[in-house]
Protein backbone atom coordinates (compact mmCIF):
# COMPACT_ATOMS: atom_id res chain seq x y z
CA UNK A 1 0.00 0.00 0.00
CA UNK A 2 2.72 2.44 0.97
CA UNK A 3 4.57 1.80 -2.29
CA UNK A 4 1.50 2.51 -4.40
CA UNK A 5 0.86 5.69 -2.47
CA UNK A 6 4.43 6.81 -2.92
CA UNK A 7 4.60 6.09 -6.63
CA UNK A 8 1.15 7.48 -7.44
CA UNK A 9 0.50 10.32 -5.03
CA UNK A 10 3.35 11.56 -2.89
CA UNK A 11 6.93 12.56 -3.40
CA UNK A 12 8.11 11.38 0.00
CA UNK A 13 7.65 8.13 1.88
CA UNK A 14 4.67 7.41 4.05
CA UNK A 15 5.83 8.17 7.55
CA UNK A 16 4.89 5.63 10.21
CA UNK A 17 4.27 7.74 13.31
CA UNK A 18 2.98 5.00 15.52
CA UNK A 19 2.02 1.47 14.74
CA UNK A 20 -1.53 2.69 14.16
CA UNK A 21 -0.84 6.13 12.71
CA UNK A 22 0.56 6.92 9.25
CA UNK A 23 1.23 10.30 7.75
CA UNK A 24 1.71 11.38 4.18
CA UNK A 25 2.23 14.84 2.71
CA UNK A 26 0.86 15.28 -0.80
CA UNK A 27 0.10 18.00 -3.31
CA UNK A 28 -3.38 19.47 -3.07
CA UNK A 29 -4.51 18.33 -6.53
CA UNK A 30 -3.92 14.67 -5.61
CA UNK A 31 -5.81 14.86 -2.29
CA UNK A 32 -9.19 13.79 -3.54
CA UNK A 33 -7.68 10.94 -5.56
CA UNK A 34 -5.76 9.61 -2.58
CA UNK A 35 -8.80 9.70 -0.33
CA UNK A 36 -10.78 7.87 -3.02
CA UNK A 37 -7.97 5.35 -3.41
CA UNK A 38 -7.90 4.61 0.31
CA UNK A 39 -11.69 4.53 0.44
CA UNK A 40 -12.15 2.17 -2.46
CA UNK A 41 -9.21 -0.19 -2.11
CA UNK A 42 -8.86 -0.41 1.66
CA UNK A 43 -11.20 0.07 4.59
CA UNK A 44 -10.32 3.70 5.25
CA UNK A 45 -13.91 4.78 5.17
CA UNK A 46 -14.38 7.10 8.16
CA UNK A 47 -13.42 10.74 8.10
CA UNK A 48 -12.48 11.50 11.67
CA UNK A 49 -11.47 15.12 11.53
CA UNK A 50 -10.19 17.89 9.35
CA UNK A 51 -7.69 20.18 10.97
CA UNK A 52 -5.76 23.15 9.78
CA UNK A 53 -2.45 24.56 10.98
CA UNK A 54 -1.38 28.07 10.16
CA UNK A 55 2.31 28.26 9.18
CA UNK A 56 2.42 31.99 8.74
CA UNK A 57 6.23 32.11 8.41
CA UNK A 58 6.14 29.75 5.45
CA UNK A 59 3.03 31.34 4.04
CA UNK A 60 0.68 28.37 3.90
CA UNK A 61 -1.99 26.44 5.72
CA UNK A 62 -1.44 22.76 6.36
CA UNK A 63 -4.78 21.01 5.97
CA UNK A 64 -4.80 17.58 7.57
CA UNK A 65 -7.46 14.98 6.87
CA UNK A 66 -7.67 12.19 9.39
CA UNK A 67 -9.12 9.02 7.96
CA UNK A 68 -9.71 5.86 9.95
CA UNK A 69 -10.35 2.28 9.00
CA UNK A 70 -13.74 0.80 9.60
CA UNK A 71 -12.50 -1.25 12.55
CA UNK A 72 -10.84 1.89 13.92
CA UNK A 73 -7.42 0.34 14.29
CA UNK A 74 -5.40 2.49 11.86
CA UNK A 75 -5.48 6.17 11.10
CA UNK A 76 -4.08 7.95 8.08
CA UNK A 77 -3.01 11.59 8.35
CA UNK A 78 -3.12 13.10 4.90
CA UNK A 79 -1.57 16.51 4.89
CA UNK A 80 -1.71 19.00 2.09
CA UNK A 81 -0.43 22.54 1.87
CA UNK A 82 -2.64 25.35 0.59
CA UNK A 83 -2.09 29.09 0.28
CA UNK A 84 -3.07 31.44 3.06
CA UNK A 85 -4.87 34.16 1.13
CA UNK A 86 -8.34 33.65 -0.37
CA UNK A 87 -8.04 29.95 0.13
CA UNK A 88 -10.49 27.88 -1.85
CA UNK A 89 -10.68 24.16 -1.23
CA UNK A 90 -12.95 21.46 -2.59
CA UNK A 91 -15.51 20.34 -0.04
CA UNK A 92 -15.86 16.71 1.03
CA UNK A 93 -19.35 17.17 2.39
CA UNK A 94 -20.90 15.14 -0.42
CA UNK A 95 -18.71 12.13 0.26
CA UNK A 96 -18.66 12.34 4.06
CA UNK A 97 -21.67 13.85 5.77
CA UNK A 98 -19.69 14.80 8.85
CA UNK A 99 -17.26 16.90 6.80
CA UNK A 100 -19.95 19.54 6.54
CA UNK A 101 -19.70 20.65 10.14
CA UNK A 102 -15.91 20.34 10.27
CA UNK A 103 -15.53 22.53 7.20
CA UNK A 104 -17.97 25.01 8.64
CA UNK A 105 -15.81 25.22 11.73
CA UNK A 106 -12.62 25.73 9.72
CA UNK A 107 -14.29 28.32 7.53
CA UNK A 108 -15.17 30.33 10.58
CA UNK A 109 -11.83 29.99 12.29
CA UNK A 110 -9.50 30.41 9.30
CA UNK A 111 -11.59 31.91 6.56
CA UNK A 112 -11.05 29.00 4.21
CA UNK A 113 -13.72 28.73 1.55
CA UNK A 114 -14.94 25.22 0.96
CA UNK A 115 -16.47 25.00 -2.50
CA UNK A 116 -19.50 22.76 -2.58
CA UNK A 117 -20.37 23.08 1.08
CA UNK A 118 -23.87 24.49 1.21
CA UNK A 119 -23.85 25.81 4.76
CA UNK A 120 -20.84 27.82 5.88
CA UNK A 121 -22.69 30.05 8.33
CA UNK A 122 -21.16 31.17 11.58
CA UNK A 123 -20.88 28.27 13.98
CA UNK A 124 -19.71 29.48 17.35
CA UNK A 125 -19.17 33.17 16.87
CA UNK A 126 -21.92 35.71 16.45
CA UNK A 127 -21.68 38.83 14.30
CA UNK A 128 -17.91 38.48 14.02
CA UNK A 129 -16.41 41.13 11.75
CA UNK A 130 -12.70 40.89 12.59
CA UNK A 131 -10.00 38.57 11.26
CA UNK A 132 -10.94 34.90 11.64
CA UNK A 133 -9.65 34.23 15.14
CA UNK A 134 -7.42 31.22 14.64
CA UNK A 135 -5.26 32.86 11.97
CA UNK A 136 -1.87 33.67 13.40
CA UNK A 137 -2.05 37.35 12.55
CA UNK A 138 -5.04 37.77 14.85
CA UNK A 139 -3.66 38.82 18.23
CA UNK A 140 -6.24 37.96 20.84
CA UNK A 141 -4.55 39.93 23.63
CA UNK A 142 -4.48 43.06 21.54
CA UNK A 143 -8.13 42.52 20.68
CA UNK A 144 -9.02 42.10 24.34
CA UNK A 145 -7.11 45.20 25.42
CA UNK A 146 -8.80 47.17 22.70
CA UNK A 147 -12.38 46.05 23.23
CA UNK A 148 -12.77 45.02 26.84
CA UNK A 149 -12.04 46.46 30.24
CA UNK A 150 -10.31 44.61 33.03
CA UNK A 151 -10.99 45.06 36.66
CA UNK A 152 -8.46 47.23 38.43
CA UNK A 153 -5.67 45.19 39.89
CA UNK A 154 -5.33 42.66 37.14
CA UNK A 155 -1.89 43.45 35.76
CA UNK A 156 -0.90 40.06 34.46
CA UNK A 157 -1.93 40.60 30.88
CA UNK A 158 1.65 41.33 29.92
CA UNK A 159 4.36 39.37 28.20
CA UNK A 160 5.71 36.96 30.78
CA UNK A 161 9.30 37.04 29.58
CA UNK A 162 9.55 40.82 29.47
CA UNK A 163 7.84 41.01 32.81
CA UNK A 164 10.28 38.56 34.40
CA UNK A 165 13.15 40.58 32.99
CA UNK A 166 11.67 43.78 34.30
CA UNK A 167 11.03 42.30 37.73
CA UNK A 168 14.55 40.92 37.84
CA UNK A 169 15.97 44.26 36.89
CA UNK A 170 13.84 45.90 39.54
CA UNK A 171 15.00 43.41 42.11
CA UNK A 172 18.59 43.94 41.12
CA UNK A 173 18.24 47.68 41.32
CA UNK A 174 16.55 47.34 44.68
CA UNK A 175 19.33 45.10 45.89
CA UNK A 176 21.95 47.50 44.74
CA UNK A 177 20.13 50.40 46.29
CA UNK A 178 19.88 48.42 49.50
CA UNK A 179 23.52 47.62 49.31
CA UNK A 180 24.42 51.23 48.74
CA UNK A 181 22.17 52.38 51.54
CA UNK A 182 23.67 49.81 53.80
CA UNK A 183 27.18 50.85 52.85
CA UNK A 184 26.29 54.46 53.42
CA UNK A 185 24.73 53.60 56.75
CA UNK A 186 27.74 51.56 57.69
CA UNK A 187 30.01 54.36 56.65
CA UNK A 188 28.04 56.93 58.60
CA UNK A 189 27.87 54.63 61.60
CA UNK A 190 31.59 54.15 61.35
CA UNK A 191 32.03 57.86 61.08
CA UNK A 192 29.78 58.45 64.06
CA UNK A 193 31.69 55.89 65.99
CA UNK A 194 34.89 57.55 65.04
CA UNK A 195 33.43 60.91 65.88
CA UNK A 196 32.19 59.55 69.14
CA UNK A 197 35.63 58.38 69.96
Amino acid sequence: MFKTIKSNFATADVEVKRQDLYKVVIKYDRLSALIDFLYNNYTYKILNAITCTDWIEEGHFALTYLITTEDRSNTFMIQTLVGREDTKVESFSKKFKQAQIMERDLHEMYGIDFIGNDNLKELSLENWVHTPPLRREFDTLEFVNEHLTFREGREDNVDVKAETKRLRALKKAQKEADKKAKEAADASALKENEDGK
Binding site: V144, L148, T149, G153
Partner: peptide, 19 residues
Protein backbone atom coordinates in the same frame (compact mmCIF):
# COMPACT_ATOMS: atom_id res chain seq x y z
CA UNK B 1 -17.06 36.78 36.10
CA UNK B 2 -14.84 38.78 38.43
CA UNK B 3 -11.95 39.54 36.12
CA UNK B 4 -11.85 37.10 33.26
CA UNK B 5 -10.21 34.30 35.21
CA UNK B 6 -8.51 31.68 33.08
CA UNK B 7 -9.81 33.30 29.93
CA UNK B 8 -8.41 36.75 30.54
CA UNK B 9 -6.95 36.87 27.05
CA UNK B 10 -9.80 35.19 25.23
CA UNK B 11 -11.36 37.17 22.41
CA UNK B 12 -14.85 35.84 23.01
CA UNK B 13 -15.55 36.25 26.71
CA UNK B 14 -16.30 39.35 28.73
CA UNK B 15 -14.01 40.13 31.64
CA UNK B 16 -16.09 42.02 34.14
CA UNK B 17 -19.73 41.08 34.48
CA UNK B 18 -20.82 44.12 36.46
CA UNK B 19 -20.26 46.34 33.45
Amino acid sequence: TVNGGMYWDSYNTIKKLED
